[in-house]
Design a protein around this nucleic acid. Sequence first.
DNA 1: ATAACTTATTGACCAGGATCAATGTTTGCC
DNA 2: GGCAAACATTGATCCTGGTCAATAAGTTAT
Lengths: 265, 265
Amino acid sequence: MPRKNHGTASPSPRLETRSCEQCTVRDICLPALLSPEQLAEFSKVVKRTEVLHKGDYLYRVNEPFSDLFAVFTGFFKAFVVDRHGSEQITGFYFTGEIMGLHALAHRSYQYHVVALNTSVACRIPYSEYKRLAAKFPSLYTRLHDIFSHELIRARFSAANLTATQKVATMLYGISRRFQERGYSPFEYLLPMPNTDIANRLRLASETVSRIFTRLAKQKIVTVDDRRVKILDMERLADLSPHNLYLLDHRPMPDNVNNGSMTRHG
Amino acid sequence: MPRKNHGTASPSPRLETRSCEQCTVRDICLPALLSPEQLAEFSKVVKRTEVLHKGDYLYRVNEPFSDLFAVFTGFFKAFVVDRHGSEQITGFYFTGEIMGLHALAHRSYQYHVVALNTSVACRIPYSEYKRLAAKFPSLYTRLHDIFSHELIRARFSAANLTATQKVATMLYGISRRFQERGYSPFEYLLPMPNTDIANRLRLASETVSRIFTRLAKQKIVTVDDRRVKILDMERLADLSPHNLYLLDHRPMPDNVNNGSMTRHG
DNA sequence: ATAACTTATTGACCAGGATCAATGTTTGCC
DNA sequence: GGCAAACATTGATCCTGGTCAATAAGTTAT
């Protein structure tokens, strides 16, 4: 019963080269720390996938790993299928975010990744990435930062929050991500259905629905058919322990803080 | 009320150099992929902390980041303190495991880390690490693998399991980690109190206690005053969705699998 | 050894969220 | 445009695991 068909995949994506230089999420993405000249060189190894439609797979569990991906346009979700055949969403990806990091250790992808709607990804061959990173160490710095951010973000999923806190954190987090990308943090369209949000938060979709209506009654957020309007950002932030989930993806300057480390406060 | 004193910290650890060459967890640790000559060079930048006792801090939240640490002997736990002052354990570290990865993005440590008992850590200055990694790229490979493993492991905490599954997974996971290090997977001493396990699993300690007695009745595992005896590894593994949490820390050979990536199965 | 404290065990009760069910609403498709 | 399928909403009921409480048993210091 829990078989889910994410649409038939589109024909094998044709690759197409274009540059990172005028990409709007360049400063969030992997090459964020590169100089213009370095960026030009990096840009050459990046190929775009063809347009993927809702439900199309970017990659599947157990496929051999060779490339990292960045979201160019649209949105993706990652998930695994448990032994009972039902899917467990492990994350959503917004533009500029990197997919495939979990594949490095096993040399194969550990999640399925599908497009949530019409989307394009940038394919970054890992071998090319390493070649360039040897020349431009800030590429390593940035990758480590992204890894490190992902680890901290993973803690969010681990903190035991109430259902309301989970939902608030999700809405607040998405708001922040839109804001980072230059969109209004107060009003946005959810890229995924309610059920996906519930799944990601490990809640029943009924529970999420109930919380939406409750948040609307409290005049904090309204969610009407995927359209989110945040009426009271203040109180929304209060509901979400976002100190646990601060996901400012903007990179820090590439110099190591080596202040002296005193132990035992 | 929730203030917790992890013992008074010991005097500032005196550093002491010894080599990685004869370390028993060398093949699990950061320099796992290095050749003997490379290892000798790596070994020179590693300093040991002095002996830390139960409750001593290795580092604290918000201290500026400069070093990665590896567990040399003993066990450590990482945790944060939430706004109500109670601690939330985010992980346990066994010998050879790397601590501080979450600090890279923020240039400051994001967790508190304390010794669970008499322990020693290896201090690896990140700047030195990067200098050597530029010469020995397999150091980068290994770090990325460890990062990648951590991300996958983090998924475990996110999967919504029943209390029994959580406890079983923990006991099974610790068994595996002991086995990797050459100890019996069937009988071991828990390095942490019951309450810490409950905390880590986001369960009430009463619940963990009840599950221990139930597992004993079923003749699967007995836990008697921290001494764990696994009577039926088979059934324990069945209880733990370890497909979600396979943590084989042994590194893979340092060559990138670049098999052709076919999309849509 | 005794006191004071921390940790473990077991029971009784409670509550948050899951499940089941019924109905309404969109969306995609021919 | 109309049908089917997916998605959303609301209510009723149930159950896992949390909380509170009492006791026991280790652990540490004096």
